[in-house]
Nucleic acid binder design. Structure first.
Length: 636
RNA sequence: GGGCCCGUAGCUCAGCAAGGAUAGAGCGGCGGCCUUCUAAGCCGCAGGUCGGGGGUUCAAGUCCCCCCGGGCCCGCCA
């Protein structure tokens, strides 16, 4: 089934033009993606053919375009009424009759832009936050982007597996576990990730203060850490004593014991990691984010994935040892292997030149350490093992790692290691996103200084409740549920609506802003569309497209028709924000229509056509909301 | 020092992948619109040397080079 009528027109047009050009022996071609709407005429789409080929034909652009137009068979381009040349452009005029029917039919059934099931699996690994303190806005961006991308892949026809790597084997978790082991007598209170976050901050503070006292800390600021202790005590006075003798050796020893499977260490590590994770999942669940599988870093060690990856790297000949510490000799691999060079974006010539200038080590990584000299695994080591696990122990064809841009180098190093182990490094795609900058707020997980997602959701929800109560709605469970879903929409939209490679400048006002270009604005528009249809009652079986004749109506249908291309772009460019931008624009156009085009009270004929238009808008807006994970509401 | 990313209206951002037909939104500011499908809405006004300079091209916000400003990374932290 064709689910992208406009796209089929565009590729047919580009195909016809390219065929004509090759017959004319012109070495130019166009992509269907270049077919653009005329700014002057809503029904016209075209390509700037004349300009492009004037040179080859030694003609004026207008004449050149005419020569191409002569060779084009308009009847082979769907939805096309005529082909003509204007201002050097080769344009087609769309026949609304069929296009509108197809688009609105597909849109209303939410089939517009949907891909056929491919029977292929892709993995999206996202969130994967260290289980040491509550989720904050930065981790929220990861989860929201990852979840949205997974939804996009699913809509386009892949079978998506959402994985979460539980990083339970690193120093940060060890610090929390060490703190907990000294305070076993305390019973966790309240939300688990919040409570353990306090233990984590306390343990960090004690460790730092002890370092400063021993004169081991370089940049230690005693006062800040004493403030941290006060901050924790203010939130829970019980979390105080018992940590005085905590030191780095104890922490490292605990980590070492956990990695080697010691049962006592295991008990405390698992308690903290599972508790914090449970807290995470509560928050993520509120936001409609779920996973198919949790992979535990510790299991990668215990189930020998780390050993397997070492063996493979050893046999590649690029494994090195620095005392007891193990590393991948990327410096040599880059010099010797084309596949590794490609990952770092360098050619053989460039490498040779850099070597001659003695600057090679300035530009490329030399040693990629996998373990410490005490034999414990670094996150890089388990990350390489995790990649091996993904390739060998799952049946996915490709894996998207949603990881902050600051990890770009590490991700390349992991992909290089994958190549050295004999696998296609393109199996792993680094879906990079930038951090969230809280304007005017200092954040530090280690100091228990953060704005949590829970705080944001609760604050936003409280504001929605206030608005609803001002409108005279009572405080009942249904209203509470509406407030919750609006709050989730506001937060998710605010974090997704920026291009992933840009730093988000985050302000409270942004999440609490429910006006145009916000989650609630799009939700509201969806609700309006829904309620028109609900009130209108029976859905007419058919409609007359010529009844949709105003500029607003026509451009709304064309805008719906562009949705499939938007979704494909979001996938290809790793840009879920394209969907939220689109949804906002569609909502905005729909609201303009809403103000001036009565539906229910429209004359017969017009009423049916407008109902179909509203059905189409509701379908696409609803689907766009689904793809960015913003809840739909039927009342708000 | 090296690498990657960002720089578009007072602020926050689209547009750059695929160069084209008059640079777009929102917020904030000012002024209007609720007896008619929910005003979380709509309409109007004000606001731009697209960081700077070269170049390629019939055509540059978009491509190339140089420079300036900001962020991140270059750990036996994650």
């Amino acid at each position: 089934m064709i689910t992208d009528p406009l796209g089929s027109m565009k590729s047919a047009l580009a195909g016809e033009v390219n065929k004509a050009l090759s017959e004319m022996e012109v070495e130019e071609s166009f992509s269907s993606l270049q077919v653009a709407r005329s700014p002057k005429d809503t029904d016209v789409y075209g390509l700037p053919v004349g300009f492009k080929i004037a040179r080859y034909l030694k003609r004026k652009p207008e004449e050149a375009a005419l020569l191409v137009a002569e060779r084009i068979d308009a009847s082979s381009i769907p939805y096309t009424e005529e082909v003509r040349v204007e201002n050097g452009y080769l344009n087609v005029r769309i026949s609304r009759e069929v296009l509108f029917k197809d688009v609105l039919y597909l849109a209303s059934r939410e089939e517009l832009g949907r891909g056929e099931r491919k029977g292929e699996r892709l993995m999206v690994e996202h969130t994967s936050v260290n289980p040491v303190h509550p989720l904050h806005v930065g981790s929220g961006r990861n989860a929201i982007i990852g979840d949205s991308f997974a939804r996009i892949l699913d809509f386009l026809g892949w079978d998506v597996r959402r994985h979460y790597l539980v990083n339970d084997c690193n120093l940060q978790v060890a610090i929390l576990a060490a703190g907990r082991s000294k305070m076993r007598h305390l019973k966790p209170k309240g939300k688990l990730d919040h409570w353990f976050g306090l233990i984590y901050a306390m343990a960090n503070a004690v460790l730092e203060i002890n370092r400063i006292k021993r004169g081991e800390s370089e940049e230690g600021n005693l006062k800040e850490w004493e403030e941290t202790i006060e901050r924790v005590r203010a939130q829970d006075p019980e979390i105080a004593g018992g940590l005085a003798e905590l030191d780095d050796r104890y922490v490292m020893d605990l980590l070492k014991r956990y990695q080697s499977g010691d049962p006592d260490a295991r008990e405390v590590f698992r308690e903290v990691a599972e508790s914090v994770l449970r807290g995470f999942l509560q928050t993520l669940g509120r936001m409609g984010i779920a996973y198919d599988q949790f992979d535990w870093e510790s299991e990668l060690i215990w189930k020998s994935w780390v050993r397997k990856s070492l063996e493979k790297l050893e046999s590649s000949g690029y494994l090195g040892r620095d005392g007891e510490a193990i590393y991948v000799d990327l410096g040599r691999a880059i010099r010797e292997r084309e596949d590794v060079r490609r990952i770092f974006g360098l050619t053989e010539d460039e490498i040779r030149k850099l070597e001659e200038e003695g600057r090679l080590e300035e530009v490329v990584p030399v040693r990629f350490y996998l373990t410490r000299s005490d034999g414990t695994w670094l996150y890089t080591g388990t990350d390489v093992a995790y990649s091996l696990f993904k390739v060998e122990a799952t049946d996915v064809r490709r894996c998207y790692n949603v990881i902050a841009t600051e990890q770009t180098l590490e991700q390349k190093e992991v992909r290089a290691s994958l190549a050295l182990m004999g696998y296609d490094p393109d199996f792993l795609v680094h879906f990079a996103y930038e951090m969230v900058n809280l304007v005017g707020v200092r954040m530090s997980g280690r100091k228990a200084l953060y704005i949590t997602l829970d705080d944001l959701l609760n604050e936003a929800k409280a504001k929605v409740m206030k608005i609803l109560e001002e409108r005279g709605m009572s405080r009942d469970p249904e209203i509470e549920e509406i407030a919750e879903r609006v709050a989730v929409g506001a937060l998710k939209y605010a974090l997704i609506n920026v291009s992933p490679t840009k730093v988000v400048q985050f302000r409270w006002e942004r999440v609490l802003d429910f006006e145009t270009n916000s989650g609630p604005f799009v939700q509201y528009s969806y609700t309006r569309a829904h309620n028109i249809l609900k009130k209108a009652g029976e859905i007419p079986e058919s409609f007359d497209p010529s009844e949709l004749s105003s500029d607003l109506e026509v451009s709304l249908v064309y805008m719906l028709a562009e949705f499939p291309e938007k979704v494909r772009s979001a996938y290809q460019l790793l840009r879920p924000d394209l969907i939220s931008q689109y949804a906002n624009e569609l909502a905005s156009n729909f609201n303009k229509f809403y103000e001036t085009h009565p539906v229910i009270n429209a004359p017969k004929g017009t009423r049916e056509a407008r109902m179909w238009l509203v059905m189409g808008v509701r379908g696409v807006l609803g689907k766009a909301l689904d793809l960015i994970g913003v809840p739909r509401l039927e009342r708000m």
